[in-house]
Amino acid sequence: MYSTLLLAAASTVPQTVEWSPKVAIVMIVCNILAIAFGKFTIKNQNVGPQLPSPAMFGGMGLGALLGTTSFGHILGVGVILGLANAGVL
């Protein structure tokens, strides 16, 4: 009984898009947009440990960079899955 239930559940799993340069470009663009969004909205960007090259990220600290890139990856996953379902990727 359990094996047929697991088989039925496994057959309804949607296919995900495989990695390609298009997928990488979408993720990079989403991360750049998230960093830019964080640059203009985070009040205390330089609180906490500093990056080795703070000028590269506009003076953002490590916490702000980790927060914005985490948001960028969540945003990127949503965009990639949406574009894959639309048939663009």
Rank of each mutant, 00 (worst) to 15 (best):
M1V: 06
M1I: 04
M1C: 06
M1K: 05
M1G: 14
Y2L: 13
S3L: 13
S3M: 07
L5K: 07
L5C: 02
L6M: 08
L6K: 07
L6R: 09
L6H: 07
L7M: 11
A8M: 05
A9P: 01
A9L: 15
A10S: 09
A10E: 09
A10K: 11
S11D: 08
T12K: 12
T12M: 14
V13W: 10
P14H: 03
P14E: 03
Q15S: 12
T16E: 13
T16N: 05
T16V: 09
T16G: 15
V17Q: 14
V17A: 14
W19E: 14
W19K: 07
S20M: 02
P21H: 11
P21Q: 08
P21N: 12
K22W: 03
K22E: 11
V23I: 15
V23C: 09
A24V: 01
I25W: 06
V26Y: 13
M27K: 04
M27C: 12
I28G: 12
I28H: 03
V29L: 14
V29S: 11
C30D: 06
C30S: 15
C30Q: 03
C30I: 00
N31I: 01
I32P: 00
I32E: 00
L33E: 04
L33I: 10
L33F: 13
A34K: 00
A34H: 00
A34C: 11
A34Y: 00
I35P: 00
I35G: 06
I35D: 09
A36P: 02
F37Q: 05
G38A: 05
G38F: 08
K39G: 02
K39A: 08
K39R: 09
K39S: 12
K39E: 04
K39F: 10
F40V: 06
I42R: 07
I42K: 02
K43A: 13
K43D: 09
N44R: 04
N44L: 01
Q45V: 12
Q45N: 08
Q45S: 13
V47R: 09
G48Q: 07
G48K: 05
P49W: 11
L51M: 15
L51A: 07
L51E: 10
S53H: 03
P54Q: 08
A55S: 14
M56Y: 04
F57I: 14
F57T: 15
F57G: 02
G58K: 09
G58M: 08
G59W: 04
G59I: 00
M60L: 12
M60F: 10
L62P: 01
L62Y: 03
L62Q: 10
L65N: 03
L65F: 15
L65G: 00
L65I: 04
L66A: 12
L66C: 06
L66Y: 03
L66W: 00
L66G: 02
G67P: 01
G67Y: 00
G67Q: 03
G67C: 05
T68K: 01
T68D: 00
S70F: 15
S70L: 14
S70W: 10
F71L: 15
F71G: 01
G72C: 04
H73G: 08
H73V: 12
H73M: 12
H73W: 06
I74A: 14
V77I: 11
G78M: 12
G78T: 09
G78Q: 01
I80K: 08
L81T: 11
L81Y: 09
G82S: 14
L83E: 07
A84E: 02
A84Y: 11
A84R: 01
N85Q: 15
N85S: 14
A86F: 13
A86G: 13
G87T: 10
V88I: 15
L89K: 05
L89G: 05
